[in-house]
Simulated scan of single mutants.
Amino acid sequence: MKTFPAQYSTLSAVALKNHLIEAYQLDPATTCRLLIRNVSDTYILENQSQKYIFKIYRDAHRKRNEIEAEVELLNILKANGNGVSYPLTDVTGKQIQQFNAIEGLRNGVLFSFAEGKVILDLENAQLIQLGQDIAKLHQTTSSIKLSNPRPVFSFETTLFEPLHDLKLHFAEMQEEFEYLSDVAVRVVKKFEEFDTSKFSYGYCHYDFFPKNFHFDSAGNITFFDFDFAGEGYLINDLMTFLNHYFFHQLNNLITKEQAEEDFNTFLSAYQQVRPLTADELEAIPYLGITFHIFFLKFFYDNYDDWSNAFLTPRYTKHRVTLIKKWEEMYCNF
């Protein structure tokens, strides 16, 4: 019987283990197991002395040239002394593996393991370290141009394209769609008040939640998961970290006063390395609206292959409510 085409397969951990042991000359006792099934699947490989992360991308989410750009970016960051989980090179000199999966070609990268752990409630010393390390990372990403393309975070890609593509999804939620359309226009109008010519621009991580960096026992930070890395205002990364405090407050895990104090400690530490203009500081919260609308489109686009079983009208309305709460908490139009 002919094999029927699949839209999304999960590659065998056993087969991957055998392939990667040979390709990278790893310890034959290395084990491999699926860690996260997502728009890109993540596996963990480990033996008695070492751990690795293997990420395999879905072609519909990341084309080969975008992966090459991510690898290039991480190689540059590592060479400049930034603490990142970086791509490893196999015995033939390749940093990207290719597999002929059921749905077609898929590309994968073996990464160094980020030692340490996630810390959700950061103390002052950790906030200072984080602010300075992100600023140092931005010193690198603001001064390079990659050979291959990455996404661009502009109002077109984070507001207007998402709203155009989401219009059908909101067919039965006209009130919510009208709100999003209105707030998008207000964000753009607000930015007309800022001197954006003086905003730092470069490659953003665009997902600087604590889940994407580890602190080791000595307090050193390793950043990882550059899956969304793209070009835009560098304050986008400060905005994504502000989202950590937004959700922490909504979940009653921190007071408003402590959240403001902690974020200001982080911002002050960042500015010890990379000063920000007054307009950049004021603009940070307004980019939060673009971030949430961008991810609404991301959830919509990847619904089929991400097993995101909760993209219901109720869930969508909840996400719009979050944007309203963000506006109430941080914005002053």
Rank of each mutant, 00 (worst) to 15 (best):
R64N: 10
Q129T: 13
K51E: 05
K78N: 12
I53C: 05
N100R: 15
E103H: 13
L110P: 01
F99G: 05
T89I: 15
K55H: 00
N75E: 13
L130H: 05
S85Q: 10
D121H: 10
L130M: 04
T92I: 02
K51G: 11
Y57D: 01
G81V: 02
K55Y: 00
Q126K: 06
K51M: 07
L130V: 03
L127H: 08
N107E: 09
E68S: 09
Q48S: 11
I134L: 14
A114H: 04
A135Y: 09
D59E: 10
E103V: 14
S112H: 01
G93T: 12
N80T: 07
L127S: 09
D133V: 00
A114F: 05
G108M: 01
D90Q: 04
K78Q: 15
V118C: 05
L130Y: 02
Y86V: 09
N100S: 15
Q98R: 06
E46Y: 05
Y52A: 02
I134Q: 03
R64H: 12
R64D: 07
D133F: 01
K51T: 06
Q48M: 07
A125Q: 15
D90H: 03
I53H: 01
D59M: 10
N107Q: 06
L74F: 13
S112I: 06
Q129C: 08
S49G: 09
A69P: 10
F99E: 05
I119S: 09
E103T: 13
Y86G: 04
N75C: 10
H61Y: 14
G108R: 00
K136P: 00
Y57V: 00
G131A: 14
Q50M: 13
R64S: 12
I76R: 15
V71G: 04
R62W: 11
L105W: 11
A101Y: 12
I119K: 14
Q48C: 06
I96T: 02
Q97A: 09
G116Y: 06
L88D: 04
N65L: 15
Q132W: 07
V84I: 10
G116D: 02
N75G: 12
G108L: 00
E72F: 09
Q50Y: 08
N80Y: 15
I128T: 10
K136A: 00
F111L: 07
E66N: 13
G83V: 04
F113Y: 12
S49Y: 08
I76V: 15
L77R: 14
E66F: 02
G81H: 04
K63T: 13
L120K: 15
E70D: 09
I119G: 06
E66C: 08
T89Y: 03
I128F: 06
Q48P: 04
N100M: 15
L130R: 05
K78P: 03
E70R: 10
G131I: 08
T89F: 03
K117T: 14
K55W: 01
D121R: 11
E115G: 03
D133C: 06
Q98I: 11
L105G: 03
S49T: 14
A101L: 11
R106D: 03
F99H: 08
L127M: 08
L122E: 10
D90V: 03
N80C: 12
E123P: 04
L77A: 10
Y57I: 01
N75D: 14
Q50F: 07
A135I: 09
Y52F: 14
R58S: 03
G116A: 05
